[in-house]
């Protein structure tokens, strides 16, 4: 009995990883590749254009400030990837297929998580690699830099994908997924990615600090920027403990809520539901 369940769990992990790898390959081949490269390239161009804009006195430039925040933003975009893919997979019946296959749903979720995490790592590499060639003033030689980078990234991936799974379960169509994108993009805009949050009205800055996007940016800045750059932050410090607490809290909330909400959603999937949704989609087109 226990041997079987261990075997099944190994099967889920194995199947999930292979699903993730297959979907990753699909996402980065052919026409899809252009869409994938678009935002990282736009980000690189933007960084390049502001490389001489001074910030905060002391000779620092805006590209140095924005780069870590942009990395944080790409991690946060994982949230939207989850929402969009859940909606699409529900509409085309992929989720129903998972439901009628033994352990199909857990394998599906492992696969999604593998694929989306890897997609985000690819974004980060595409941005960070070239950026290191022209962005000055980073402090990557410190022993803590990459360690901090790693834990902020890990907590960020868990938190944003958990939230994405909850949001994705609540919307019922691709159109709904589109609506969810708007507040998330607004949240990114107020989260200090492009300019220090202290430049915003106090209540906006306060609201931004409830959500993980701001803390992802802050955590990335604390990893990649020199200690002196903390002067631009709220309170003049990197607030690593607060970063870990807020990201950790969102990660835990996502891990607790996502399975419950996902289970409720997948329990409703059936052939006639998928057919009814398609009917509605066709009517919208026609």
């Amino acid at each position: 009995m226990s041997l079987t369940s261990i075997g099944a769990r190994g099967g889920i992990a194995h199947a999930g990883v292979s699903q993730g790898v297959i979907e990753l390959r699909q996402a980065f081949t052919g026409a899809e590749l252009i869409g994938q490269l678009l935002w990282p390239l736009v980000t690189l161009v933007a960084l390049f254009l502001v490389r001489d804009v001074p910030i905060g006195g002391g000779g620092a430039t805006l590209d140095t400030y924005i780069l870590p925040g942009a990395l944080g933003m790409f991690v946060a975009l994982g949230m939207l990837l989850v929402v969009q893919q859940l909606a699409a997979d529900r509409e085309d019946g992929s989720l129903l297929r998972a439901r009628i296959t033994p352990n199909g749903i857990p394998a599906y979720l492992v696969g999604k998580s593998v694929q989306i995490s890897a997609t985000i790592l690819a974004y980060l590499a595409i941005v960070l690699g070239p950026a290191l060639l022209f962005v000055d003033g980073l402090a990557l030689g410190r022993p803590g830099s990459w360690l901090t980078f790693a834990w902020v990234l890990l907590l960020g991936l868990i938190a944003t994908q958990g939230i994405g799974a909850v949001l994705g379960s609540l919307v019922s169509s691709s159109r709904g997924a589109g609506y969810v994108s708007l507040p998330v993009l607004a949240l990114i805009a107020i989260s200090g990615v492009f300019a220090p949050i202290s430049a915003l009205p106090a209540w906006v800055a306060g609201a931004a600090q409830v959500f993980p996007v701001y803390w992802l940016g802050l955590g990335m800045r604390s990893a990649l920027l020199p200690e002196s750059a903390a002067a631009l932050e709220v309170g003049g410090t990197w607030r690593p403990v607060e970063t870990a607490v807020v990201l950790g809290a969102w990660a835990v909330a996502g891990l607790v809520a996502a399975p419950v909400v996902l289970r409720r959603m997948t329990r409703k999937e059936s052939g006639s539901r998928v057919a009814a949704r398609r009917e509605r989609a066709l009517q919208r087109v026609g």
Binding site: A8, I22, R97, T101, A107
Partner: peptide, 26 residues
């Protein structure tokens, strides 16, 4: 079911093998 549209980007053999792998533990 009546008509599936799922996994449209997958290759035929790839999808069948993936689905099959989930049954192996049973």
């Amino acid at each position: 079911l009546q008509s599936w549209r799922d996994h449209a980007k997958w290759r035929v053999r790839e999808l069948l093998a993936y689905q099959g792998s989930l049954y192996a533990p049973f």
